[in-house]
Design a protein around this nucleic acid. Structure first.
Lengths: 214, 214
DNA sequence: AAATAATTCTATAGTTTTATAGAATTTTGT
DNA sequence: ACAAAATTCTATAAAACTATAGAATTATTT
């Protein structure tokens, strides 16, 4: 087994291990996404990697640990991307489009780890979910920040609950994300547009909105 | 085992069987909702019912059949309720509120079967999903019908894609439904209101919507 | 009350699965 | 080329789980 503090001469081996570890995580992600955590076997994952079932334990101490690492792996890029979007100077509509695009593009490129994170993380014991929960909160808080900015800029309705809207945006995206993974015929960019449109404009005709104005 | 065509004298026994079968389905729903289909054992379900593991097979031919029946059971009421809402004479906003209320109330009353339907039905082999798929389509089509009526009445934007919006509404509701099940502190009626508001009005300030008008 | 039917129980066969130990092989460093 | 370290393999122990068979019990009908 590899460990972080080894002589420099062993760094090459370390790098090799790290590379294959990612292969292992992605194989686990694929299998967990398809069959669910409990429905998948360590044999499935090993087969996906082209190694024997027992060899898998060189990379994961347990099946449960594999799930944990898949969930963490799948969410890393997400938070980073949201950070970039939030820090860029651009009008609110563009940001919202970028957020939805980021979220949904990942689904189209079959980010199995993302799907596993959404659907399977609850099967982890609570003590294993600490980091995952932290990443999820970060993501949602960044999104809330963007929404608050929108209000400050006078673009968004000041009476919306940013916490609620952030959750809802994530909910819509995950819901459509699932559809995108299942249905290849579904157009990604049309879906992105429609989602953004719904979030920004709703469904009512503007002139019918009188009741709602103060 | 019971069968439908028995002398009238056996109808009492039949009714008794039917009653306990529902107990079985609800026990399965609870356990599947908590642990997932593969994570749950027939022992778990039997314990929930207060019977022995082997006795469970008096009610279900297999664990898979239990899942199928839970999924079908969980969706029955839903379709009926949507039918009622759709057929009532009331303004569009009221209908939308009724739809969201119907969907979310069920979650609050811990409709485990609903959760199982959403999260676990994919673990059924395709041939077992026929009825479930039909019910889901019915539900979505009824919702689409309500949306089309809204357009015809001149209340909804005529440029929305009713198919997309129907999916999105279901997505938002399921997303919040999951939260409601998990978090008891979450206020049901506030959630209903917020969901309806987002769907109807979106997040932008109306005066900022000029770009969007034709 | 006896006979029949329905329901539940016990015990278990037969799988499947996770995880480990130690041997075998491959890779890397000297 | 040799030694050491890393990686993979084989084999298996131990546990868990589904489904079935037949006995035992309880409820219903005659």
């Amino acid at each position: 087994m590899q460990s972080a503090d080894k002589p420099i001469t062993l760094q090459i081996a370390n790098r090799k291990y790290a590379r294959k570890k990612i292969v292992a995580i992605e194989a686990a992600a694929l299998v967990f996404a398809e069959k669910g955590f409990h429905g998948a076997t360590t044999q499935d994952i090993a087969s996906e990697m082209g190694i024997q079932q027992g060899s898998l334990y060189y990379y994961f101490k347990s099946k449960e640990q594999a799930l944990q690492e898949v969930c963490e792996y799948g969410f890393e890029n997400y938070v980073e991307r949201m950070q970039k979007i939030g820090s860029k100077e651009q009008p609110f509509e563009a940001k919202m489009l970028a957020i939805v695009t980021s979220h949904l593009s990942n689904y189209r490129s079959k980010n199995n780890a993302m799907k596993v994170h959404n659907d399977q993380r609850l099967y982890l014991p609570v003590e294993r979910r600490a980091l995952i929960k932290k990443l999820g909160s970060e993501y949602r808080e960044l999104l809330e920040g963007v929404l608050k900015e929108g209000i400050d800029e006078g673009v968004l309705r000041p009476d919306i609950d940013t916490h609620f809207i952030a959750y809802s945006i994530i909910g819509i995206c995950n819901s459509w994300g699932g559809n995108l993974v299942r249905d290849d015929a579904l157009d990604l960019f049309e879906t992105i547009e429609q989602c953004s449109d719904l979030i920004l404009y709703g469904t009512l005709i503007p002139t019918k909105r009188n009741k709602h104005e103060k």
